[in-house]
Write a protein that binds this DNA or RNA. Structure first.
Length: 678
RNA sequence: UACCCCGUGGUGUAAUGGUAGCACAACUGGUUUUGGUCCAGUUAGUCUAGGUUCGAGUCCUGGCGGGGUAGCCA
């Protein structure tokens, strides 16, 4: 039970809003919706659905300089795609401009609003600071009649942009800066995308937003945390006017690792050409995710899993990918495709013969049925499914070994044909005709099953492999003088040409995501894929246990017999008195390597003065060995030796950790290693 | 340095004041014609110091830490 439902439940119990739940999703049409909005949409529409209420879609278009109808259409499409509907309750804030103007005059008549002649700079100056109160504008005590006349002349267009504002008369000393006589209207001779040139004054968000909600009879105005400080102001306006007052409830925005979420930054990625557009499949925009092959169901499920809190958190993108795979595994039709083709000739298969093999379309869904796939003498298999000198646990093709061709026959490699440079260019294999369908009558087993495509029937395709857009969990974290674009992942897009697809994929409809067996989920690109020129996007990889095993096996462990295994039990507690005995010294990192079998540990050789020591530290998530070598760091030098994951460690590094990020304490300048600290 | 909000495993989150649970991730093992899926298991947590209480993750006070706020943006 989250705090929003708790509040709604209370209202329901007390009848605060006559058992009504009416929410709204109020985007400003100045950009494309992204997955952060998806959270808000799911909460806004979801709460209404859950309580049998309604949710409006409203364009918050109070700033004509920034908004455009292009965005309106995209927003409508995206919210619908996500799976929500608003019947006929589609509104614009600009629909209420007349009413808002009436309310403004009422505020003036109540003596609670005044026309101010201060410039923008002066207003800022008069507002005071976070720690000092503001001071009142000289215009603050104009008569009601004068304010009314002036305000009408503002509306009539008698004043230039920025020359005058209408301000609420509240409290220039309020600790809440939003209450220091906020601006309600500004003069803006700008054409509005819907009202044209009807208006030359436009309401400010703080004045308009509460009114919009009130006018629509909204009961629960759900929004993000940064509006928390504004709530007293919205309430104040509505109370002065004596109109319906919704309950605003704030929740935290969605943040995701390895991406940026602000409209401004996404716009930069588009404008500066780091991505191909708002719907680039690497973008966290809804149109980008759609093009990538994400399903609305997986997004909704993800939002539900993330939950609702007031804590500013960052969700690991792997949770999103989990939700995606979870759904795709249920619904995605299976197909076979070869990304990096290696020709296989089955020497004992009759030349020119073609047969069709039955394949199950989706083992998770019996209703998905089966299909026939062509098989012949020449096939393509994945280049990485063959190794001439395979390591242990490699269950794929190698000379003399037998594998199963998915839905086909057992296959044995007899020869690897090479070019002059020694590259394998073709495999000669034999098959066992008795194993059709993949089972041997004699009951013999094969460990591996690989995918394949008939060479004569294969369809060529371009396949785009996508990876995270940024190399850092938090792209904002960068060196002085750089910005988030410095953390863009240069390998976020890999284009493969000449990939081979099973023929059924030629008719793959846009909007359907397939599982290419053993590889991942892929969908036709909704922009570039055409009948003669197939283009598929990789939505997400399959979980790859083999990659993990291979990675573990790869680095040859250099076993170092721990000289003196001093038993270390648990963590020694250091009292404040003992802390003074801790010997902190600078140390220069001479060498570093990841500890085999422990991908979080780094084994360092450090120089402390004339002495060289080995220290094991759990910093591999934060530093690569290359990064750390050469740095001068701070170590605790007088610790008992410890054995960490079988490797001796003679000391400890000093580091600072903030949220997810850990930084080692480093020493600049000419301080030699071995120097004492403090 | 003012005001507001927030601190639960690595991450995201549950828990009328009453056994700290779930999911992801990681790690084991099992099943498997996808090294997918599925199944079983392991590791791991209430920021801190006091107070109230029979009993505190929950209530109170202080500290520490994080986020927000000084647009005529939304």
């Amino acid at each position: 039970m989250d705090f929003i439902r708790a509040i709604i439940n209370e209202h329901m119990a007390k009848g605060t809003y006559q058992q009504r739940v009416h929410t709204r999703f109020p985007p400003e049409p100045n950009g494309y919706l992204h997955i952060g909005h998806a959270k808000a949409i799911c909460i806004d529409f979801g709460m209404a659905l859950e309580y049998g209420g309604k949710c409006n879609l409203r364009m918050d278009d109070t700033n004509p300089c920034k908004e455009d109808t292009e965005y309106v259409d995209a927003i409508i499409e995206d919210v619908h795609w996500l799976g929500f509907d608003w019947d006929d309750r589609f509104y614009y804030a600009s629909d209420y401009f007349d009413q808002m103007y009436e309310y403004a005059e009422e505020m003036i008549n109540q003596g609670k609003a005044y026309v101010d002649d201060l410039t923008a700079d002066e207003i800022r100056e008069y507002r005071g600071t976070l720690t000092e109160p503001g001071k009142e504008s000289p215009c603050r005590n104009r008569s009601i009649a004068e304010n009314l006349a002036l305000f009408r002349r503002m509306r009539a267009g008698e004043f230039p942009d920025g020359s005058r504002t209408l301000r609420a008369k509240i409290d220039m000393a309020s600790p809440n800066l939003n209450m220091r006589d906020p601006v309600m209207y500004r003069v803006l001779h700008a054409e509005h995308h819907r009202t044209g040139d009807k208006w030359c004054i436009y309401p400010m968000y703080d004045w308009a937003h509460g009114l919009e909600d009130s006018l629509e009879g909204i009961t629960h105005s759900l929004c993000s945390l940064e509006f928390e400080n504004h709530r007293p102001l919205y309430d104040w306006f509505l109370i002065q006017l004596g109109v319906h007052k919704p309950q605003q409830i704030e929740f935290s925005r969605l943040n995701l690792t390895y991406t940026v979420m602000s409209k401004r930054k996404l716009l930069r990625l588009v404008k500066e050409g780091f991505v191909s557009g708002w719907d680039d499949p690497r973008m966290p925009t809804l149109c980008g995710l759609r093009r990538r092959g994400y399903t609305p169901e997986s997004l909704r499920n993800f939002v539900a899993k993330v939950g609702i809190t007031k804590f500013a958190s960052t969700t690991d993108v792997v949770l999103l990918e989990h939700c995606l795979r979870e759904h795709l595994n249920q619904i995605a039709p299976r197909a076979m495709a070869v990304l990096d083709p290696l020709k296989v000739v089955i020497t004992n298969y009759p030349e020119g013969q073609v047969e069709y093999l039955e394949a199950i379309n989706n083992p998770e869904d019996p209703n998905a049925g089966t299909r026939q796939i062509p098989f012949g003498r020449e096939l393509y298999i994945e280049r990485e499914d063959f190794m001439e000198n395979p390591p242990a646990k490699f269950h794929r093709l190698s000379p003399g070994s037998e594998v199963r061709l998915r839905w086909g026959y057992f296959l044995t490699c007899t020869e690897a044909v090479k070019d002059a440079a020694g590259n394998v260019v073709e495999l000669r294999c034999t098959y066992d005709p008795a194993t059709k369908g993949g089972n041997a009558p004699d009951g013999r087993k094969v460990k591996g099953t690989i995918h394949w495509v008939s060479a004569t029937h294969a369809k060529d395709a371009e396949i785009r492999l996508y990876d995270r857009l940024f190399v850092k969990e938090n792209p904002e974290e960068c060196e002085e003088g750089q910005d988030f674009t410095a953390n863009l992942n240069p390998d976020s897009l890999t284009m493969l040409k000449g990939c081979k697809l099973e023929p059924s994929l030629a008719e793959a409809p846009a909007g359907t995501t397939y599982q290419f067996e053993r590889l991942g989920y892929f969908c036709p690109d909704n922009r570039d894929s055409k009948p003669g020129h197939l283009v598929f996007n990789r939505t997400v990889q399959l979980r790859d246990t083999w990659a993990k095993i291979a990675q573990k096996e790869a680095p040859k462990p250099a076993p170092k017999a721990p000289a003196a295994e001093a038993p270390v039990e648990g963590v020694a507690l250091i009292g404040i008195d003992d802390f003074a005995k801790v010997e902190l010294k600078t140390a220069k990192v001479l060498a570093a390597e990841v500890v085999p079998e422990a991908d979080r540990l780094l084994k360092l050789q450090v120089e402390i003065g004339s002495e060289t020591r080995q220290i094991v530290a759990g910093v591999a998530q934060f530093y690569t060995p290359e990064e750390i070598v050469g740095k001068t760091i701070v170590v605790v030098a007088n610790l008992e030796p410890a054995v960490i994951r079988g490797v001796q460690s003679n000391g400890m590094l000093l580091a600072a950790k903030k949220k997810r990020n850990l930084r080692l304490i480093t020493v600049d300048g000419d301080i030699p290693s071995g120097a004492s600290i403090g």
